[in-house]
C-alpha cells in the first residue's frame, strides 16, 4: 500500500525533465572523462571528484525543491488513510531511487569503456550512498523550514559546509597543530563527513593509496583495514539513517 505511492513518485520523477537531464549530464561527463583519460584508475579518480561535487549539490537542492513542490500533494495524500511515515518513506525512497538510477546511468558509459572494476563498483556504491545521504539531508532541511526559500538556503549552506568549510577546518587544524599527534583525531573528524569518507575509501582502492601511505601511513592503515571499512560503512549508514529519522520525527508533528 505504500508501494503505490512510492511507485508513483519514482516513475513520475524518472520521467521528469530534471532527472533525465541530470542522468544525461552525468553520462556525458563520465563518457568524456573515460574517453580522454586513457587509464581506468585516473577515470575513477576524476569521476570521484565530479561525483563528490555534483551529487551532494544536486541531491540537496533538488531534494528540497522537490519536497516543497510536492507539499500540496503530500497534504492531499495525508487526508487519505495512510500514515505520515508511509508517505514520507515513499517520497524519500521514490526520490533517492530515481536520483540513484540517474547517477548509475551516468556512470554506465565509463563502465562500458573501462569494464567492471573494483573502483567502478566502489564509485557506484559511493554515488548511491551520497544520493541517499544528501537527499535525507535535503528532506531534513525542508521539514525544519516551512518556507521554501529558507529550506533551500539551509540546503546550500549544508552543502557549502560539508563540501568545503569542513575540509578547510581540517586543513587549518592540521596546519595549526602540526606539532601534535593528530592522526587519530583526523580519522575521527573525516569519518564525520560523508564526502570525505567517500573520497578516502575510493582513494584507497586506487594508485593514490600509495601516496596516502607515503606520508600518512596511519590513515592507510586505518581506512584500509577491515575495522576501518566497517567503521566507515557504519558512519555512512548513520549519515543515511540519522537525517532520515530526524526528518521523519519533525514531519510527523508537522501542521499542514
Amino acid at each position: 500500500m505504500s508501494i503505490s505511492i512510492l511507485k508513483y513518485v519514482f516513475f513520475d520523477l524518472l520521467r521528469s525533465r530534471f532527472i533525465i537531464t541530470y542522468g544525461i549530464m552525468l553520462a556525458l561527463i563520465s563518457l568524456g572523462v573515460a574517453y580522454f583519460s586513457n587509464d581506468e584508475m585516473k577515470t575513477s579518480l576524476t569521476l570521484l571528484n565530479i561525483i563528490l561535487f555534483i551529487i551532494p549539490l544536486v541531491c540537496l537542492i533538488f531534494g528540497s525543491i522537490h519536497f516543497y513542490d510536492s507539499g500540496e500533494f503530500i497534504e492531499f495524500l495525508l487526508t487519505q488513510p495512510v500514515s505520515r511515515n508511509t508517505v514520507f518513506r515513499a517520497e524519500y525512497l521514490g526520490l533517492t531511487l530515481a536520483l540513484s538510477v540517474a547517477a548509475i546511468a551516468g556512470l554506465i558509459p565509463a563502465i562500458i569503456l573501462n569494464g567492471i572494476t573494483v573502483s567502478a563498483l566502489f564509485l557506484t556504491i559511493i554515488s548511491v550512498a551520497m544520493t541517499f545521504i544528501f537527499t535525507g539531508l535535503a528532506f531534513l532541511s525542508s521539514t525544519i523550514n516551512t518556507e521554501k526559500v529558507r529550506g533551500i538556503g539551509l540546503s546550500i549552506v549544508l552543502w557549502l559546509f560539508l563540501a568545503i568549510i569542513f575540509d578547510l577546518i581540517i586543513v587549518l587544524l592540521i596546519i595549526l597543530f602540526r606539532d601534535y599527534p593528530l592522526e587519530n583525531l583526523i580519522i575521527i573528524f573525516t569519518s564525520l563527513n560523508p564526502i570525505d569518507l567517500g573520497r578516502i575509501l575510493l582513494l584507497l582502492k586506487t594508485d593514490a593509496s600509495a601516496m596516502m601511505g607515503f606520508t600518512g601511513a596511519s590513515f592507510k592503515l586505518f581506512f584500509g583495514s577491515t575495522t576501518g571499512i566497517v567503521v566507515s560503512s557504519l558512519a555512512m549508514f548513520l549519515w543515511i539513517l540519522i537525517p532520515y529519522f530526524l526528518a521523519i520525527r519533525i514531519f510527523r508533528k508537522k501542521n499542514f
Binding site: L45, L48, N49, L52, F53, A163, I164, D167, L168, I170, V171, I174, I175, R178, L182, E183, I186, T190, I195, D196, R199, I200, L203, A208, M211, M212, F214, T215, G216, F219
Partner: peptide
C-alpha cells in the same frame, strides 16, 4: 607545501578544498 610541512594533510588529497587552495 602544506603537505611537506604537515604530512597528515595527505588525507585531503583530491578534495575540493585542495583545488580551491
Amino acid at each position: 607545501m602544506i603537505l611537506e610541512k604537515s604530512p597528515e594533510s595527505i588525507i585531503m588529497l583530491r578534495s575540493i578544498i585542495v583545488d580551491l587552495l
